Simulated assay, not measured.
Amino acid sequence: MSIVERIFHSVLLEVLAVTFSVIGLAIFTDHKIEALSGTMIVIATIAMVWNYIYNWFFDQFAKGDKLSRSFGLRIMHVTLFEVGLLVITIPVMAYLLAVSLWQAFIMDIGVTIFITIYVFIYNLVYDHVRAYVIQRRSQSLTCEGSR
């Protein structure tokens, strides 16, 4: 993937994640769309910053070839990332939506489960759509070249 495509992939992922999270929270809570939208934008921004910081620290701990990391280390990596993110975002969500820490925890767990499934599906669909587009472009160029 080119840098432009990676940026497109990331921005589309985040825009859709925030949109779907807001819709889900709006269905299951009585908060206004505006409050949920602002909160999810803040949470997404925190997640991006946390991702950078956490992975920098994790790479200091887990030195060596990243491709040779064990399954167990990868499970530990994602678990610690998500726990750390929850510790950071639960108080923020509680504050921004004026709910208790327990309510924010329940909402944040729901968003975390949703985002985990969403990212898996998003990347699966994106990869297939990308392969289809590349194949169609290749066929189009082959047809034009034979004229």
Rank of each mutant, 00 (worst) to 15 (best):
1 M>E: 15
1 M>Q: 14
2 S>W: 01
2 S>G: 06
4 V>I: 14
5 E>K: 12
5 E>V: 08
6 R>N: 12
6 R>Y: 13
8 F>A: 11
9 H>R: 10
10 S>P: 05
11 V>G: 13
12 L>N: 15
12 L>S: 13
14 E>F: 07
17 A>T: 01
20 F>E: 15
21 S>F: 07
23 I>H: 10
24 G>N: 08
24 G>L: 06
27 I>K: 09
28 F>M: 10
28 F>W: 10
29 T>L: 06
29 T>H: 02
32 K>H: 14
35 A>Q: 04
35 A>S: 06
36 L>E: 00
36 L>I: 03
37 S>M: 05
37 S>E: 02
38 G>H: 08
39 T>M: 04
39 T>Y: 00
40 M>L: 06
42 V>S: 01
42 V>R: 00
42 V>Q: 00
42 V>I: 03
42 V>D: 01
42 V>H: 00
43 I>Y: 02
44 A>T: 03
44 A>G: 08
45 T>K: 09
46 I>P: 02
48 M>G: 13
50 W>S: 15
50 W>D: 13
52 Y>E: 14
55 N>W: 11
57 F>K: 10
58 F>M: 10
61 F>W: 13
62 A>F: 15
63 K>Q: 11
65 D>K: 11
66 K>V: 15
66 K>Y: 15
67 L>E: 09
70 S>Q: 11
71 F>E: 05
72 G>N: 08
73 L>S: 09
74 R>E: 09
75 I>T: 06
76 M>D: 01
77 H>T: 01
80 L>P: 08
81 F>I: 03
82 E>N: 13
83 V>N: 12
85 L>D: 01
86 L>C: 05
88 I>S: 06
89 T>Y: 01
89 T>R: 04
90 I>Y: 08
91 P>Y: 04
93 M>W: 00
93 M>Y: 01
94 A>Y: 04
95 Y>M: 11
96 L>D: 05
96 L>M: 11
97 L>N: 00
98 A>I: 04
100 S>Y: 13
100 S>N: 08
100 S>H: 12
102 W>Q: 02
105 F>N: 00
107 M>W: 07
107 M>P: 06
107 M>G: 07
110 G>H: 04
112 T>Y: 02
113 I>N: 07
114 F>D: 10
114 F>K: 14
117 I>A: 13
122 Y>T: 06
122 Y>V: 07
122 Y>M: 06
123 N>R: 00
124 L>T: 11
124 L>Y: 12
124 L>P: 09
125 V>K: 05
125 V>D: 08
125 V>T: 09
127 D>L: 14
127 D>R: 09
128 H>G: 10
129 V>C: 14
130 R>I: 02
132 Y>M: 04
133 V>D: 08
134 I>D: 07
135 Q>R: 11
135 Q>N: 02
138 S>T: 04
141 L>P: 08
141 L>N: 12
143 C>V: 03
144 E>Q: 11
144 E>S: 12
146 S>W: 15
146 S>L: 13
